[in-house]
Simulated scan of single mutants.
Amino acid sequence: MTWTLGLVSLAVVAASLLGGFLPLRARLTHTRMQLYLSVSAGVMLGAAFFHMMPEAIEQSGSAHILNWSAFGLITLYLVERFFASHHHEVAETPESATPSSCFNEPDHRHHASGIQHDPPTPAVSLHWGAAAIGLTIHSLTGGVALASAFVIGEQAGGGLGNVSSVAWGVALATLLHKPADSLTIVSLMLRGGMKPLTAHLVNLVFALMVPLGVLFFFTGIQWWGQAAGNGPAAAVLAFSAGTFLCIGLSDLLPELRFHDHDRIKISVALLAGFGLMALTVLFHQHGSTKPAAPSVVNSDAGHAGHTH
């Protein structure tokens, strides 16, 4: 598990760096960005619903573990509301850099056609800092989610390549979403007049936030202690599912009443990502989680007398 988690973390860093180079190599319109974000959001929502929340319940032995999912969603919402919001807007004009938070509706004046590229303004250069703070918080929580999924996956056992489907689901969602985060930061920094080398160095620091979140998780689990069995890791996984829900919805809901002419394409993109996570459930071996069951129901096993 350690080596696989390390390789996935490196892959996430590489994907983040790749996303930072996209503003220099390709022209990304708002519609293209929304298609990509719809796929990414569908994967994140699917990972939360089909993998993270069911696995947290299965490992904890109680549906009340989903209270942590509610706390995760609300916590990230409050962080965005009062500190820094994250957004993935293509900075084509100063107006297009308006940030959007979870459940917020940004200014959509930039949806009009015939956008002219204005010279950098001081106002635009300030936006990347706020975006970096919000996206850094998301990257740290993403690293925590990744580590908790792999720990729960190891406890459950089985799955594709000896790693459970919950671990692969969270890994795929993280890999798909991180390039959009890096693209946002780098494009805003370049739009604000920052030199490309400086922008990519900042993006490198940002990319390393996911491995740092992994380290935070293992440090926190050691402090929390293993006396509670799977409880701490399951609670963190459920909490992370709530953050995935908030991030996914923050990319989808602000665009809900716009792009009428693209509603089919964007809906298909969302369903493609969501459906991909639904298909990965086929690799989930529910029977492989039975070794964890005695820690929850062992005291009743002798009285039940059930034999399979």
Rank of each mutant, 00 (worst) to 15 (best):
F71P: 01
V12F: 00
W3Y: 14
I57E: 12
L135N: 01
I185T: 09
A156E: 05
P99H: 10
H200F: 04
V170G: 05
M53Q: 14
A91W: 12
V281Q: 15
L45W: 05
T307D: 05
K195Q: 11
G153S: 13
S62W: 09
S96F: 03
L22P: 06
A269S: 15
W224N: 02
G142Y: 02
A278W: 14
G46W: 02
A70E: 07
N230P: 00
D251N: 13
G46R: 05
S267E: 00
V170C: 13
E105H: 14
N298K: 01
G248H: 01
G193K: 09
V186K: 08
L24T: 05
A238T: 07
T184V: 12
A132P: 00
A171V: 06
P23A: 02
S40Y: 00
L17T: 05
E95D: 13
N162H: 14
H87T: 14
S60H: 07
P179G: 09
E154A: 09
D260G: 08
A301I: 06
L73T: 15
V43W: 00
V296Q: 11
T136H: 08
G192A: 09
K265W: 13
V202R: 04
G61Y: 10
A304S: 12
A97P: 00
G46Y: 07
V163C: 02
L271W: 06
V163Y: 01
V166H: 04
Q116D: 12
V144S: 07
G157W: 02
Q285E: 14
G129K: 09
V186M: 08
F21A: 13
P291H: 03
E154G: 11
T141S: 10
M194Y: 06
L5C: 12
A278V: 06
A132R: 10
G134R: 06
G169N: 08
A233R: 04
F50D: 07
F49P: 06
G242H: 08
A227S: 13
S96E: 07
N104T: 15
